[in-house]
Amino acid sequence: MSNSQFYSKKVMEHFLKPRNYGRIENADAVGKVGDPSCGDVMWLYLKIKEKNGKYVIEEAKFETFGCAAAIASSSVATEIIKGKTIEEALKVSNKDILKELGGLPLVKVHCSLLAEDAIREAIYNFMRKKGLQIPEELEKRHEKIKARLDKTLEMHKKLGYVTGEN
């Protein structure tokens, strides 16, 4: 299926009936990734509770602007991380998302990466807020995501796509 331009049954199912979409008011963590001029944006909201000295993701919700693959990837990502500790959630990769979706067409694989980025960014946001020790890898990842967004915005400014205030 992954070489086809068409989506798997699982992708269509998550696209048509996305789990956990919407906003969490007073979320403990928010991860915002992507940018509108690239065609996909994912905002991930988490409710995190402390249990036996571990931080556990009790609730995860998303809001996504994008294609069916982006929406399905977000939906699956929220399902995967719910109930996990933040350490466990940091180990979730786009491969897990792709596996759960039954694959994505090659040109859409980046949507699963966007979901992985959203998880990382949300947890980074949480650790920053809590003043927790941020693992070096996560710090680097955050810098990378931020740099990529800055680069895209820069490019779009040059192309004249970004006009004044958004």
């Binding site: 979409y21 509108p36 809001e63 996504t64 602007f65 929406i71 967004l149 915005l153």
Partner: peptide, 12 residues
Amino acid sequence: RDISPFKGKWEV
């Protein structure tokens, strides 16, 4: 639009 993060305006 219910799924989209943008409610009436674009944000980055």
